[in-house]
Amino acid sequence: MLEDVTTRVPRLEIEYCTQCRWLLRAGWTAQELLTTFTDELGEVALIPGKGGVFDVRIDGEPVWSRSQEGGFPDLAVLKRAVRDRIAPGRDLGHSDRHEPS
């Protein structure tokens, strides 16, 4: 018998390209975000995709898109973007330190 499945919020999704074999990158990114946002994230989903996709979304809203940003996210930048959506004002320690321009 199937149980009632409830989505926990916020839900972070990482859609990755299976053709490009980016599962390990997606899994590593998920691990880093789950480690940083242990109490703030409701769930993290890895979604297989195609065509070079590597997108990060929170509750369906884009946080990072490889096609729009022109590459993969720097982890510190991604952590700040996620934090700004789910835990504004939270100190991320070393991830909050911006590199000199």
Rank of each mutant, 00 (worst) to 15 (best):
L33F: 05
P10S: 02
R80Y: 08
R66V: 12
L78F: 07
R11T: 13
V77G: 00
K79L: 14
H94Y: 10
S65D: 05
G27W: 07
S65N: 03
A76F: 09
P88V: 12
L75C: 05
L24G: 06
T36A: 09
T38N: 02
V63Y: 02
S65C: 03
G27N: 13
I58P: 06
I47S: 11
T18E: 14
V53C: 07
L78M: 10
T36Y: 00
G71F: 06
G71E: 02
D4E: 15
W28P: 00
P73W: 07
R11I: 05
D91Q: 03
A26T: 10
S65Q: 13
L2W: 10
R80I: 13
Q31N: 12
A45H: 11
E40N: 05
P88S: 08
G93S: 08
G89M: 11
L34D: 09
D96W: 10
S101K: 06
L46N: 06
R66E: 09
F72H: 07
R85A: 09
T7M: 14
E15F: 10
G42E: 07
V53G: 00
T18D: 11
S65H: 04
G70V: 06
V56E: 02
P73S: 10
V63M: 04
L23A: 12
R83A: 13
L34C: 14
Q31D: 14
D39F: 04
E15R: 15
Q19Y: 11
L41R: 01
L41M: 06
S95P: 00
T18G: 10
L41V: 03
E13W: 07
K79S: 07
R21A: 15
D59Q: 04
G27P: 09
E3G: 13
D39P: 00
W64Q: 10
T38Y: 06
W22Y: 08
I14K: 09
R8S: 14
A76I: 08
W64R: 08
W64L: 10
P48K: 01
A76T: 11
D96L: 11
G52C: 09
P48F: 06
D74M: 13
T38L: 13
P48N: 03
E13F: 11
P62Y: 04
E43H: 02
A45M: 12
G52H: 01
T35P: 00
V56K: 05
K79G: 04
V53M: 02
I86G: 00
P88F: 06
R57N: 08
I14H: 04
E3T: 15
G42A: 12
P88R: 06
G71Q: 06
T38S: 13
E61K: 14
L12N: 01
R97A: 12
T7P: 04
E61A: 14
R97K: 13
K79N: 03
D74A: 14
P62S: 07
E40I: 04
L75P: 03
E32A: 15
R90P: 00
C17W: 03
G49F: 04
T38M: 09
R83K: 12
P48D: 01
Q68S: 11
I14M: 11
R80F: 11
D59E: 08
R66S: 12
G60Q: 02
Q19K: 14
R11G: 02
E15H: 11
V63E: 01
I47L: 15
L75W: 04
